[in-house]
Design a protein around this nucleic acid. Structure first.
Lengths: 199, 199
DNA sequence: GTCTATACGACGATAGAC
DNA sequence: GTCTATCGTCGTATAGAC
């Protein structure tokens, strides 16, 4: 009988470590989570963890870049599926709202933890590729005259700021109803803020 | 000669501890700051610190409630100085922008640190009194028909979300120019988003 | 009230057997 | 590659002199 069936591949072990880490970090934060906690939660021993990752920081770094990659892929796909800027941005907000409900740990870790405190090398989230792509989309919207001409950072903040605040409020438990409920309510004024058309 | 001149009053010692703590927390974060650090930075010994505060968490708690009180006082004053909702909200954003430039530690600690990770008892920032007052102001704006009738959380997020995002971006070092530069640019679309008037 | 010195525990990380 | 056992460090908090 092929022993490979019962054997954990390195990738499976790594994945178990990473998903356990994400859950713990989002629940208790980086500093309140010990490597021992990760070992227990993932079912992988401390020694094994240190075999796969240089140190605790490297685990956090891997979790982070995994999520960044995933977000980027998703937003890229949204970009290619929609043509008008308004559809694109609306779809991005819808996606962010959905993932906040279905995998709160992901959003919690992505845009609601202070990475600088434990990943000093990493640039801030809003300089990450997904956020850059979102600004790129806004920029295209200006060129297409869908969005009023203004500072790019200002426009992006106006367009996505409200949605992002709703997300953090929801993660804080201040909002009871699921976010998708508010999609229309948030989108209409957000778009109104920057659109070239007077609604 | 009156010895009181050379003697530190308890209040002065406490204040030294609190301001040193605020600076360190905002620079390095709660968990990267040891009580030893606070002792060195404030010039107060560890023993003295523990005489005034039960534990490290209590120091953080005191810093936090001090800042909340201060913000609340400031916003209350703004509320009484302005009558129209638009003036009030604009003044609040102007105030937040100013304090972000003049005392970045304050804003850093107020709305850009994960309090839940080290102050488990404290309710989230957005449930704090200053934020409640901001929502109150928005609510009055709806009653006065200055702001479109909609969910209060949604309206508040739309009105202040962009400004708050600009603040965190600025604290992250992603925005180079001082925030007050952007006041008009942020205010116009933010107000447009929720105003009953079509601009 | 303020200080120094120290106890105590927890954590990150390693060593070395299997 | 995975495990258990352990080391050294550091951080919180206390004891006790002044």
């Amino acid at each position: 009988m092929d022993s490979a069936i019962n054997k954990q591949t390195p990738l499976m072990t790594q994945q178990k470590i990473l998903s356990a880490t994400l859950m713990l970090f989002s629940k208790k934060g980086y500093f309140n989570t010990s490597v021992r906690d990760i070992a227990h939660e993932s079912g992988v021993s401390i020694g094994s963890i240190y075999h796969h990752f240089k140190d605790k920081e490297a685990i956090a770094s891997a979790v982070y870049s995994n999520l960044v990659e995933r977000m980027l892929a998703e937003i890229t796909q949204i970009q290619s599926k929609h043509i008008r800027t308004s559809s694109r941005c609306r779809a991005i907000i819808a996606f962010l709202f959905d993932i906040t409900e279905q995998e709160p740990e992901v959003m919690e870790f992505m845009l609601y933890s202070k990475h600088r405190e434990f990943l000093p090398e990493e640039p801030p989230v809003c300089s990450s590729k997904p956020f850059e792509l979102m600004r790129e989309i806004v920029k295209d919207g200006m060129l297409a005259n869908e969005i009023q001409s203004m500072d790019l950072m200002v426009a992006s903040s106006c367009l996505f700021g409200a949605a992002l605040r709703m997300i953090t409020s929801r993660l804080d438990g201040v909002i009871e109803k699921p976010l998708p409920t508010y999609l229309e309510a948030i989108w209409t004024p957000s778009w109104r803020a920057v659109s070239t058309q007077t609604l």
